[in-house]
Simulated assay, not measured.
Amino acid sequence: MEEKLLDWEDNSENLPFKTHMLAGSCAGVVEHSISFPFDTIKTFAQAESTRSASYWDIAKLMKNEGFIKMWRGVSTVILGCVPAHAAYFSIYEYSKRHFQIESNKDFYFFSTAITGILATSSHDIIITPMDVIKQRIQLNRVKGPLGMLKHVVGNEGIISLYRSLPITLIMNMPQAVLFMTFYENFKSQLYPDGNVSMYGFFTCAGVSAALAAGLTTPLDVIKTRLQTQRETCPSCGTKFMQSQGNLSKPRYGNIQNAISLIYLEDGLRGFLRGMVPRMMFFLPGAAVSWSVYEHVKSLLL
């Protein structure tokens, strides 16, 4: 068994990129399907203001809607995560080969930072419109991604699908840098011989993702406010981010405006909303995603 694992590690670098794309797509689908309820809870926690909501309201939502409804919008993100994860893991493998990132006793910083930025940028450009639709569905009763897409574009214009792209990139780039640096260095220090087990991939990825997610929560709060304004919580009757006066004008028009309003309404604690469910979403998500990715690679090899 040990010999097979070593052969897989030695030959995995010679796999064609279509293999990495297929393995990455499988990893993305499994990741989002399993951890999606935590993402729904995070969305509700971050979209609320302190004057109208609490985690008690979210518990009431789960009771009234049912646990199955915590997967509302999962089909949308699956459609987006297939090409997004295919691009992510392909660029990850290319950068890893280029920078010669290997499992040994060395520490990596610059190379893992660049790798994380390149991979996550390609991923976010593809996934952001789908993420907007997904979060709107999580907060609304509109049925299906197509219906929500028509609703959002018809009322707010196509720009609404990309309004959060700048903050998404600003948020995910440091998160990707932190994750990739933690992940590759954990592997290099814990498995200096390069023989990383599936348990090793699972653990290193999960811990790295949780740490990176917790440190970048404030940026995720801003992104969620930009993406979910004007939506309604169906079970508790709460209005999310209503516009002031002119309905065609979003309440959170840009990043600076969102920061000011969040601080005005919630104070500094407003930027930490959803930290625990966010970490709980990324921990199993990354652990499953990366271990599935490596496992599928080994099967295709």
Rank of each mutant, 00 (worst) to 15 (best):
P277H: 07
E9Q: 11
I117H: 00
K63H: 09
Q256N: 12
T216S: 14
I125N: 00
A27H: 04
I159P: 04
W71V: 02
Y199I: 08
R230M: 04
D7Y: 01
L268I: 15
K239F: 08
P277C: 14
M70P: 01
Y88A: 01
G237F: 00
R136P: 01
L264N: 03
Q244Y: 03
A213I: 00
L211G: 14
A209D: 05
T228M: 01
G73D: 13
G28Y: 13
S35P: 09
L165C: 09
G144R: 11
G253C: 04
G206F: 02
N140E: 14
A258F: 05
L79M: 14
I170T: 07
K96N: 08
D193V: 00
R72C: 06
T43K: 07
V292I: 12
W290I: 14
S188A: 11
A53M: 08
I167M: 13
S243V: 10
Y55K: 04
S289L: 03
A87G: 04
A176E: 01
A258R: 02
K42N: 12
D131K: 13
I259V: 14
T203R: 02
I167H: 04
E294H: 15
R278A: 13
D124K: 05
V29Y: 08
F186N: 07
Q135P: 02
L161H: 03
S289A: 14
F179W: 07
I133D: 01
Y92I: 05
R273E: 11
V29T: 14
P129C: 12
T50M: 05
D220F: 06
R230A: 01
L215V: 14
L215H: 06
A287I: 06
M171R: 09
F281D: 15
T120E: 03
V221A: 10
G237S: 05
R273H: 11
F271K: 05
P234E: 13
Q100P: 02
L15Q: 13
I117C: 10
S103L: 03
M130H: 06
T232E: 12
L5F: 03
S208V: 02
E9D: 13
K134A: 00
I126D: 06
M171T: 15
A209S: 15
I167C: 10
E294F: 08
S35R: 12
I126A: 04
R230Y: 07
G194N: 10
S243D: 03
D131W: 09
D220W: 00
T181A: 11
R251K: 10
F17D: 11
D7N: 09
A45E: 02
K239Y: 07
M279N: 08
G274V: 10
T181F: 02
A53C: 11
H20E: 12
C81A: 07
R72T: 13
T238H: 04
G237H: 09
R278M: 11
L283S: 15
G200Y: 02
L15D: 07
R97C: 00
P234N: 09
S160G: 08
C204K: 06
R72F: 05
F38D: 10
S188E: 05
